[in-house]
Design a protein around this nucleic acid. Structure first.
Length: 159
DNA sequence: GCCAACGTTGGC
DNA sequence: GCCAACGTTGGC
């Protein structure tokens, strides 16, 4: 049974449309620099898992669509690049500190689920997005996922 | 290992 | 831009 995750991104930096526009709709999800998020990504994410994309720090924070995990976790290359914002001098190739997976675009929602609306729905009272909003790699329960799809009318908008 | 200082996140 | 929440750092 594959898991369902929610990944947060700032659309000004990397939006779901940017993901869609990548070759094969696929991109490495780099830049995770929080240990709890890293542990989940490195130790629990599996190829084939479902991903919800959430846009944060923007006028309309919302769950905007779906992607899927298409690689096993591997070291985030930006941690080794001194010119990258993700550079971490404490990392080495023998002992990498930060990990990422590749994800592929699946669909955008006809009606993104605004955070404002999500907070009003009893189904989401115990969702991590509500209880621990700062964690950037979140778990989503099957029930929550079904309710999200019900509200958002997923459309196949593959490139 | 404690804890104060500091930095970051992200909704509003 | 403000500020609350919370993660990280580093002196002791």
């Amino acid at each position: 049974m594959s898991a369902i995750w929610l990944l947060k991104t700032e659309p000004d930096t990397f939006s779901i449309d940017d993901l869609r526009a990548c070759p094969d709709g696929t991109s490495g999800w780099d830049g995770v620099r929080n240990y709890q998020a890293r542990n989940r990504l490195r130790d629990e994410m599996c190829k084939g898992d479902t991903v919800l994309i959430y846009h944060s720090s923007c006028p309309q924070p919302a769950i905007v669509g779906e992607a899927c995990v298409v690689s096993d976790p591997y070291p985030d290359p930006s941690q080794f690049d001194a010119d990258s914002a993700g550079f971490d001098s404490r990392s080495s190739h023998d002992n990498p500190r930060w990990y990422q997976v590749d994800i592929r675009y699946v669909c955008s929602y006809a009606q993104p689920l605004l955070l404002k609306k999500l907070r009003q729905d009893e189904e989401f009272t115990h969702m991590e997005l509500v209880l621990r909003p700062r964690l950037s790699v979140q778990k989503v329960a099957e029930r929550e996922f079904q309710r999200i799809q019900q509200l958002c009318q997923p459309e196949d908008t593959s490139p």
